[in-house]
Design a protein around this nucleic acid. Structure first.
Lengths: 159, 159
DNA sequence: TTCATTTGCTTTCATATGAAAATATTTCAT
DNA sequence: ATGAAATATTTTCATATGAAAGCAAATGAA
Protein backbone atom coordinates (compact mmCIF):
# COMPACT_ATOMS: atom_id res chain seq x y z
CA UNK A 1 0.00 0.00 0.00
CA UNK A 2 1.76 3.10 -1.31
CA UNK A 3 1.11 6.62 -0.20
CA UNK A 4 3.18 8.40 -2.81
CA UNK A 5 6.13 10.60 -1.88
CA UNK A 6 5.68 9.55 1.73
CA UNK A 7 7.39 6.33 0.77
CA UNK A 8 10.51 8.36 1.11
CA UNK A 9 12.22 8.59 4.46
CA UNK A 10 15.38 10.56 4.93
CA UNK A 11 16.43 8.33 7.78
CA UNK A 12 16.73 5.43 5.36
CA UNK A 13 18.15 7.35 2.43
CA UNK A 14 21.64 6.16 1.62
CA UNK A 15 23.19 9.46 0.48
CA UNK A 16 21.86 11.12 3.60
CA UNK A 17 23.32 8.45 5.84
CA UNK A 18 26.70 8.63 4.13
CA UNK A 19 26.82 12.41 4.08
CA UNK A 20 26.17 12.87 7.76
CA UNK A 21 28.77 10.29 8.70
CA UNK A 22 31.26 11.91 6.34
CA UNK A 23 30.66 15.31 7.90
CA UNK A 24 31.12 14.08 11.41
CA UNK A 25 34.25 12.21 10.47
CA UNK A 26 35.74 15.32 8.90
CA UNK A 27 34.80 17.41 11.94
CA UNK A 28 36.33 14.82 14.20
CA UNK A 29 39.71 15.24 12.63
CA UNK A 30 39.56 18.64 14.21
CA UNK A 31 42.88 20.35 14.29
CA UNK A 32 45.15 17.36 14.10
CA UNK A 33 46.27 18.52 10.69
CA UNK A 34 46.52 22.16 11.57
CA UNK A 35 49.15 21.17 14.11
CA UNK A 36 51.15 19.56 11.34
CA UNK A 37 50.66 22.63 9.16
CA UNK A 38 48.32 21.18 6.55
CA UNK A 39 44.61 21.35 5.81
CA UNK A 40 42.35 18.33 5.56
CA UNK A 41 42.49 18.51 1.76
CA UNK A 42 46.26 18.80 1.82
CA UNK A 43 46.45 15.78 4.06
CA UNK A 44 44.38 13.87 1.55
CA UNK A 45 46.79 14.78 -1.19
CA UNK A 46 50.00 13.92 0.59
CA UNK A 47 48.47 10.73 1.95
CA UNK A 48 47.65 9.67 -1.60
CA UNK A 49 51.18 10.53 -2.74
CA UNK A 50 52.60 8.62 0.18
CA UNK A 51 50.47 5.58 -0.54
CA UNK A 52 50.60 5.46 -4.33
CA UNK A 53 53.80 7.30 -5.16
CA UNK A 54 54.45 10.13 -7.65
CA UNK A 55 51.58 10.65 -10.03
CA UNK A 56 49.85 13.15 -12.31
CA UNK A 57 47.64 15.92 -10.97
CA UNK A 58 44.63 14.27 -12.52
CA UNK A 59 45.26 11.00 -10.74
CA UNK A 60 45.56 12.74 -7.40
CA UNK A 61 42.37 14.63 -8.17
CA UNK A 62 40.50 11.40 -8.86
CA UNK A 63 41.88 9.64 -5.81
CA UNK A 64 41.11 12.50 -3.46
CA UNK A 65 37.86 13.61 -5.05
CA UNK A 66 39.32 17.09 -5.27
CA UNK A 67 38.45 19.18 -8.30
CA UNK A 68 41.17 20.09 -10.80
CA UNK A 69 41.37 23.81 -10.16
CA UNK A 70 41.48 23.27 -6.43
CA UNK A 71 44.23 20.70 -7.01
CA UNK A 72 46.34 23.21 -8.90
CA UNK A 73 46.03 25.68 -6.06
CA UNK A 74 46.69 23.22 -3.28
CA UNK A 75 49.69 21.68 -5.01
CA UNK A 76 50.95 25.19 -5.73
CA UNK A 77 50.80 26.06 -2.06
CA UNK A 78 52.46 22.87 -0.94
CA UNK A 79 55.18 23.25 -3.54
CA UNK A 80 55.95 26.74 -2.24
CA UNK A 81 56.18 25.28 1.23
CA UNK A 82 58.52 22.56 0.05
CA UNK A 83 56.25 19.58 0.72
CA UNK A 84 55.95 18.40 -2.87
CA UNK A 85 57.57 18.99 -6.23
CA UNK A 86 55.96 19.28 -9.65
CA UNK A 87 57.70 18.04 -12.76
CA UNK A 88 56.70 17.38 -16.35
CA UNK A 89 57.61 13.87 -17.44
CA UNK A 90 59.70 13.85 -20.63
CA UNK A 91 57.39 11.24 -22.08
CA UNK A 92 54.24 13.32 -21.83
CA UNK A 93 54.79 16.99 -21.30
CA UNK A 94 51.19 17.91 -20.94
CA UNK A 95 50.80 16.01 -17.72
CA UNK A 96 52.34 17.23 -14.49
CA UNK A 97 53.69 14.70 -12.06
CA UNK A 98 53.83 15.44 -8.38
CA UNK A 99 56.11 13.78 -5.90
CA UNK A 100 56.44 14.03 -2.16
CA UNK A 101 59.59 15.75 -0.95
CA UNK A 102 61.32 14.84 2.28
CA UNK A 103 59.37 17.47 4.21
CA UNK A 104 56.13 16.16 2.80
CA UNK A 105 56.99 12.61 3.73
CA UNK A 106 57.88 13.71 7.23
CA UNK A 107 54.55 15.52 7.54
CA UNK A 108 52.62 12.42 6.52
CA UNK A 109 54.53 10.22 8.89
CA UNK A 110 54.01 12.77 11.59
CA UNK A 111 50.25 12.63 11.13
CA UNK A 112 49.82 8.90 10.61
CA UNK A 113 49.91 7.87 14.27
CA UNK A 114 47.13 10.35 14.97
CA UNK A 115 44.89 9.11 12.23
CA UNK A 116 45.51 5.53 13.26
CA UNK A 117 44.44 6.46 16.78
CA UNK A 118 41.46 8.33 15.40
CA UNK A 119 40.33 5.34 13.43
CA UNK A 120 40.77 3.10 16.44
CA UNK A 121 38.41 5.40 18.35
CA UNK A 122 35.89 5.35 15.56
CA UNK A 123 36.01 1.63 15.23
CA UNK A 124 35.53 1.01 18.91
CA UNK A 125 31.78 0.65 18.46
CA UNK A 126 32.22 -2.13 15.91
CA UNK A 127 33.31 -5.72 16.16
CA UNK A 128 36.19 -6.85 13.93
CA UNK A 129 33.71 -8.51 11.63
CA UNK A 130 31.42 -5.51 11.44
CA UNK A 131 34.33 -3.26 10.64
CA UNK A 132 35.47 -5.53 7.84
CA UNK A 133 31.96 -5.72 6.46
CA UNK A 134 31.51 -1.98 6.68
CA UNK A 135 34.73 -1.26 4.81
CA UNK A 136 34.02 -3.81 2.17
CA UNK A 137 30.52 -2.43 1.61
CA UNK A 138 31.97 1.06 1.28
CA UNK A 139 34.50 -0.21 -1.25
CA UNK A 140 31.83 -2.08 -3.15
CA UNK A 141 29.61 0.96 -3.30
CA UNK A 142 32.49 3.12 -4.47
CA UNK A 143 33.46 0.78 -7.25
CA UNK A 144 29.88 0.45 -8.29
CA UNK A 145 29.54 4.24 -8.42
CA UNK A 146 32.72 4.40 -10.43
CA UNK A 147 31.37 1.90 -12.89
CA UNK A 148 34.44 -0.21 -12.38
CA UNK A 149 34.25 -3.95 -12.45
CA UNK A 150 34.70 -5.23 -8.97
CA UNK A 151 38.18 -6.19 -7.97
CA UNK A 152 38.09 -6.62 -4.24
CA UNK A 153 39.83 -3.57 -2.93
CA UNK A 154 42.44 -3.05 -5.60
CA UNK A 155 41.95 0.58 -6.49
CA UNK A 156 43.14 0.67 -10.03
CA UNK A 157 42.10 3.87 -11.72
CA UNK A 158 40.52 3.72 -15.13
CA UNK A 159 42.92 4.85 -17.88
CA UNK B 1 55.53 -7.57 12.67
CA UNK B 2 55.20 -3.81 12.57
CA UNK B 3 56.99 -1.54 10.16
CA UNK B 4 55.93 1.78 11.62
CA UNK B 5 53.86 4.27 9.65
CA UNK B 6 53.62 1.74 6.83
CA UNK B 7 51.00 0.01 8.93
CA UNK B 8 48.76 2.69 7.55
CA UNK B 9 46.96 2.07 4.30
CA UNK B 10 44.64 4.61 2.81
CA UNK B 11 42.67 1.91 1.07
CA UNK B 12 41.59 0.59 4.46
CA UNK B 13 41.15 3.90 6.20
CA UNK B 14 37.54 4.44 7.18
CA UNK B 15 37.30 8.22 6.71
CA UNK B 16 38.89 7.86 3.28
CA UNK B 17 36.41 5.19 2.26
CA UNK B 18 33.46 7.22 3.48
CA UNK B 19 34.65 10.46 1.94
CA UNK B 20 35.14 9.10 -1.53
CA UNK B 21 31.74 7.42 -1.52
CA UNK B 22 30.15 10.63 -0.25
CA UNK B 23 31.76 12.63 -3.05
CA UNK B 24 30.63 10.27 -5.75
CA UNK B 25 27.13 10.19 -4.36
CA UNK B 26 26.93 13.97 -4.36
CA UNK B 27 28.31 14.14 -7.91
CA UNK B 28 25.83 11.52 -8.99
CA UNK B 29 22.91 13.70 -8.07
CA UNK B 30 24.05 15.82 -10.94
CA UNK B 31 21.55 18.43 -11.91
CA UNK B 32 18.40 16.79 -10.63
CA UNK B 33 18.05 19.57 -8.10
CA UNK B 34 19.00 22.35 -10.47
CA UNK B 35 16.01 21.35 -12.57
CA UNK B 36 13.80 21.83 -9.54
CA UNK B 37 15.47 25.16 -8.80
CA UNK B 38 17.36 24.23 -5.64
CA UNK B 39 20.94 23.38 -4.77
CA UNK B 40 22.04 20.17 -3.09
CA UNK B 41 22.29 21.96 0.25
CA UNK B 42 18.85 23.48 -0.19
CA UNK B 43 17.44 20.07 -1.01
CA UNK B 44 18.91 18.79 2.23
CA UNK B 45 17.18 21.54 4.15
CA UNK B 46 13.73 21.17 2.63
CA UNK B 47 13.98 17.40 2.85
CA UNK B 48 14.64 17.69 6.57
CA UNK B 49 11.74 20.11 6.97
CA UNK B 50 9.52 17.76 5.01
CA UNK B 51 10.52 14.80 7.09
CA UNK B 52 10.64 16.31 10.57
CA UNK B 53 8.33 19.31 10.28
CA UNK B 54 8.92 22.93 11.32
CA UNK B 55 11.96 23.38 13.47
CA UNK B 56 14.62 25.81 14.63
CA UNK B 57 17.55 26.84 12.45
CA UNK B 58 19.91 25.05 14.77
CA UNK B 59 18.04 21.77 14.47
CA UNK B 60 18.11 21.96 10.70
CA UNK B 61 21.80 22.77 10.88
CA UNK B 62 22.48 19.68 12.99
CA UNK B 63 20.36 17.42 10.85
CA UNK B 64 21.88 18.59 7.59
CA UNK B 65 25.45 19.07 8.84
CA UNK B 66 25.29 22.60 7.48
CA UNK B 67 27.04 25.30 9.45
CA UNK B 68 25.00 28.03 11.12
CA UNK B 69 26.05 30.97 8.98
CA UNK B 70 25.49 29.02 5.82
CA UNK B 71 22.08 28.04 7.16
CA UNK B 72 21.10 31.66 7.69
CA UNK B 73 22.03 32.48 4.12
CA UNK B 74 20.35 29.48 2.54
CA UNK B 75 17.14 29.92 4.50
CA UNK B 76 17.22 33.62 3.61
CA UNK B 77 17.40 32.77 -0.07
CA UNK B 78 14.66 30.19 0.12
CA UNK B 79 12.44 32.52 2.10
CA UNK B 80 12.82 35.18 -0.59
CA UNK B 81 11.85 32.59 -3.15
CA UNK B 82 8.81 31.60 -1.13
CA UNK B 83 9.85 28.03 -0.32
CA UNK B 84 9.98 28.44 3.45
CA UNK B 85 8.92 30.87 6.12
CA UNK B 86 10.80 31.98 9.21
CA UNK B 87 8.97 32.83 12.42
CA UNK B 88 9.99 33.39 16.01
CA UNK B 89 8.01 31.20 18.38
CA UNK B 90 6.27 33.20 21.11
CA UNK B 91 7.63 30.80 23.69
CA UNK B 92 11.29 31.39 22.85
CA UNK B 93 12.01 34.44 20.82
CA UNK B 94 15.67 33.84 20.42
CA UNK B 95 15.15 30.79 18.26
CA UNK B 96 13.86 31.02 14.73
CA UNK B 97 11.54 28.35 13.47
CA UNK B 98 11.37 27.50 9.83
CA UNK B 99 8.48 25.84 8.09
CA UNK B 100 7.96 24.63 4.57
CA UNK B 101 5.51 26.64 2.51
CA UNK B 102 3.34 25.12 -0.18
CA UNK B 103 5.93 25.87 -2.86
CA UNK B 104 8.62 24.24 -0.80
CA UNK B 105 6.52 21.16 -0.22
CA UNK B 106 5.79 20.93 -3.91
CA UNK B 107 9.50 21.18 -4.68
CA UNK B 108 10.33 18.35 -2.31
CA UNK B 109 7.60 16.15 -3.70
CA UNK B 110 8.76 16.99 -7.18
CA UNK B 111 12.25 15.77 -6.39
CA UNK B 112 11.41 12.71 -4.33
CA UNK B 113 10.67 10.34 -7.22
CA UNK B 114 14.08 11.19 -8.67
CA UNK B 115 15.98 10.50 -5.49
CA UNK B 116 14.07 7.27 -4.98
CA UNK B 117 15.12 6.22 -8.46
CA UNK B 118 18.66 7.34 -7.76
CA UNK B 119 18.85 5.26 -4.64
CA UNK B 120 17.43 2.27 -6.46
CA UNK B 121 20.29 2.59 -8.96
CA UNK B 122 22.85 2.85 -6.22
CA UNK B 123 21.47 -0.09 -4.38
CA UNK B 124 21.44 -2.32 -7.41
CA UNK B 125 24.86 -3.73 -6.54
CA UNK B 126 23.67 -4.85 -3.10
CA UNK B 127 21.39 -7.59 -1.92
CA UNK B 128 18.50 -6.62 0.33
CA UNK B 129 20.40 -7.92 3.31
CA UNK B 130 23.60 -6.10 2.40
CA UNK B 131 21.71 -2.87 1.97
CA UNK B 132 20.07 -3.23 5.35
CA UNK B 133 23.40 -4.02 6.96
CA UNK B 134 25.09 -1.12 5.24
CA UNK B 135 22.48 1.38 6.38
CA UNK B 136 22.48 0.09 9.89
CA UNK B 137 26.27 0.28 10.09
CA UNK B 138 26.14 3.85 8.82
CA UNK B 139 23.53 4.71 11.43
CA UNK B 140 25.54 3.02 14.14
CA UNK B 141 28.69 4.89 13.18
CA UNK B 142 26.81 8.16 13.12
CA UNK B 143 25.33 7.68 16.54
CA UNK B 144 28.65 6.62 17.89
CA UNK B 145 30.28 9.75 16.47
CA UNK B 146 27.51 11.82 17.96
CA UNK B 147 28.12 10.29 21.33
CA UNK B 148 24.48 9.36 21.52
CA UNK B 149 23.36 6.23 23.20
CA UNK B 150 22.18 3.85 20.56
CA UNK B 151 18.50 3.84 19.80
CA UNK B 152 18.16 1.84 16.65
CA UNK B 153 17.50 4.40 14.03
CA UNK B 154 15.43 6.88 15.98
CA UNK B 155 17.22 10.12 15.33
CA UNK B 156 16.42 12.06 18.42
CA UNK B 157 18.59 15.11 18.69
CA UNK B 158 20.22 15.87 21.95
CA UNK B 159 18.60 18.80 23.74
C1' DT C 1 53.35 17.84 -42.93
C1' DT C 2 49.28 20.54 -41.52
C1' DC C 3 45.10 21.35 -39.26
C1' DA C 4 41.45 19.91 -36.07
C1' DT C 5 40.54 17.42 -31.94
C1' DT C 6 41.47 15.70 -27.59
C1' DT C 7 43.81 15.71 -23.28
C1' DG C 8 45.78 17.83 -19.06
C1' DC C 9 46.64 21.58 -16.38
C1' DT C 10 46.06 26.54 -15.02
C1' DT C 11 43.70 30.94 -14.63
C1' DT C 12 39.80 33.76 -14.08
C1' DC C 13 35.73 34.90 -12.08
C1' DA C 14 31.68 34.69 -9.52
C1' DT C 15 29.92 32.33 -5.62
C1' DA C 16 29.90 29.51 -1.35
C1' DT C 17 31.99 28.73 2.83
C1' DG C 18 33.23 28.86 8.03
C1' DA C 19 35.29 31.36 12.05
C1' DA C 20 34.77 34.97 14.82
C1' DA C 21 32.36 39.13 16.11
C1' DA C 22 28.01 41.25 16.80
C1' DT C 23 23.22 41.10 18.27
C1' DA C 24 19.20 39.67 20.76
C1' DT C 25 16.80 36.76 24.01
C1' DT C 26 16.56 33.82 27.88
C1' DT C 27 18.26 31.83 32.10
C1' DC C 28 20.62 31.89 36.31
C1' DA C 29 22.57 33.69 40.55
C1' DT C 30 22.40 37.14 43.76
C1' DA D 1 14.65 43.07 40.12
C1' DT D 2 19.72 43.38 38.20
C1' DG D 3 23.68 41.95 36.18
C1' DA D 4 26.32 37.93 34.35
C1' DA D 5 26.38 33.90 31.65
C1' DA D 6 24.39 30.97 28.29
C1' DT D 7 21.86 30.21 24.03
C1' DA D 8 20.40 31.09 19.17
C1' DT D 9 20.87 33.54 15.17
C1' DT D 10 22.90 36.91 12.00
C1' DT D 11 26.65 39.64 10.09
C1' DT D 12 31.26 40.46 8.74
C1' DC D 13 35.29 39.17 6.72
C1' DA D 14 38.80 36.52 4.78
C1' DT D 15 39.31 32.33 2.30
C1' DA D 16 38.02 28.19 -0.44
C1' DT D 17 35.54 26.50 -4.09
C1' DG D 18 33.99 24.94 -8.95
C1' DA D 19 32.63 26.12 -13.75
C1' DA D 20 34.15 27.85 -17.69
C1' DA D 21 37.66 29.99 -20.39
C1' DG D 22 42.43 29.82 -21.64
C1' DC D 23 46.74 27.52 -22.91
C1' DA D 24 49.93 24.08 -24.24
C1' DA D 25 51.14 19.43 -25.64
C1' DA D 26 49.81 15.21 -27.92
C1' DT D 27 47.09 12.59 -31.07
C1' DG D 28 44.68 11.59 -35.26
C1' DA D 29 43.07 12.49 -39.97
C1' DA D 30 43.80 14.16 -44.48
Amino acid sequence: MSDGPRDFHLEQFLPYLVHRVGSRLADGFGDRFAEAGVSLQEWRIIAVLYEYGPQAMGDIARRTSINASTMTRLIGGMERRGLVKRERPVANQRSVFVRLLEDGRRTVEDIIPDVIAYEADLSACFSEAELRTFKSLLAKMFHSLTGERENDGADRLAG
